[in-house]
Computed example of a mutant assay.
Amino acid sequence: MLRSLQIIDTLQVGGAERLAINYANGLSQLGVQSHLCATRQEGPLLKVLDENVEYIFLNKKSTIDFKAFLALRSYILTTKINVIHAHSSSFFIAVIMKLFIPHLKIIWHDHYGNSEFLNKRPKLLLKFCSLFFSYILSVNKDLRQWSAKNLHCKNVIYLKNFPVLKKATGSSTTLYGENGKRILCLANLREQKNQIRLLESFQQVASKYPDWTLHCVGKNFHDDYSRRFFEKLRKLDLNNFVYFYDSKTDIINIMQQCQIGILVSKSEGLPMALLEYGISSLAVICTDVGDCGELIKDNCYGILLEDDRSTTISEAIMAFIEDKDYRTGSAHKFHEMILRDYSEKPILTQVVDIYNQVV
């Protein structure tokens, strides 16, 4: 019997974290005994883990944490795990486990978000660890090519992300602003996600369409970028037009209150937020980074930004605001395409086939 363990650093609300949860939940419905391990930090996503998925939290304090290593080794031996599916940087602890338990098979899932800057990616440790990987799953084609060229594992494939939105328990978020006139940016507050440029763009939108509002949902890390974001918000006098909500788990509820979904990232892999916009029938605007262009396909399913200049972004937003038929038609086509090409079952079935192959 297949017994798989998804390993992820945290359960904070992020793309790789949501996908790890989706895998753990989805595989449990396909006859796989499914487990999930959070190594460093728990978070809101724990609330959407299915009851039939076994869970362990290591509370790992440092890169080398023998207490955490021994706890995970004991768990793997007790539950008879035979496949470790390691997401992002958790490949290191997966390799440590294989050194303890040689029969384990490691699938590494590469979610690297800075795929526009792969020439700067650290690779020494990853290259060594890749000697122990049975398979590498890459979330876009650039990452697949990079792994095939730079790492030792011979089995490298591109595997699509897939969105799953589950209703969260507990309180529901009520967005500010006028119904039918809300724009959502679902992204943690990071330099890569480029929210400061989005603020600059939205100043132009708000001056012309003051009844439309922008809603930023994502984790605030209280770092330098966060400080600059809120300073820019005050400087541009956008407090009555732009609202920040920090991390939320009731994403379905939030998206149902919005009409447009936007991402203006400097770099991406294949963003889960974009797929979730599609599931929720939002009209989408995004920069042409990572595999975003694969989704939007020359503006067939939304507006693909050629650059991240403020005027480029604001003009795209206003194009959707000014033409409701264009907005709703684009949203409908994108929704239908995501349902058709990025559905959960065929992707997870392919993963189960890979698990069976390596075991």
Rank of each mutant, 00 (worst) to 15 (best):
L2T: 08
L2P: 15
Q6G: 03
G14R: 00
L19Y: 14
G26H: 12
Q29K: 15
G31Y: 13
H35F: 14
T39A: 10
R40Y: 14
G43D: 09
G43P: 08
L49M: 13
I56S: 14
N59D: 04
K60R: 15
I64E: 10
I76N: 12
A86I: 07
S88I: 03
S89Q: 06
S90G: 01
A94D: 10
F117D: 04
K127E: 09
K127N: 11
F128G: 03
F128Q: 07
L131I: 02
Y135I: 04
V139T: 08
R144K: 15
Q145A: 14
Q145K: 05
W146T: 04
N155I: 01
V156G: 12
V156K: 07
Y158R: 11
Y158A: 02
N161P: 09
K167N: 08
K167S: 07
A168T: 12
Y176C: 04
Y176G: 00
G177I: 00
R182C: 06
L184D: 02
L189C: 02
L189A: 07
K193S: 06
F202P: 00
Q204S: 15
A206I: 03
K208S: 11
P210D: 05
H215N: 10
H215Y: 07
V217F: 10
G218A: 07
H222Y: 09
N239D: 11
N240C: 12
F241I: 01
D250P: 03
D250L: 07
N253A: 14
N253E: 11
G261M: 09
S265R: 11
S267L: 05
E276D: 08
S280T: 03
S281W: 00
V289L: 04
G290I: 12
D291Y: 12
C292Q: 09
C292F: 10
G293A: 04
E294P: 06
L295S: 03
K297R: 13
I303E: 03
E306L: 06
E315Y: 13
A316W: 01
I317Y: 04
F320P: 04
T328S: 01
S330T: 15
S330E: 01
I338D: 05
K345C: 05
K345N: 13
I347S: 11
V359M: 07
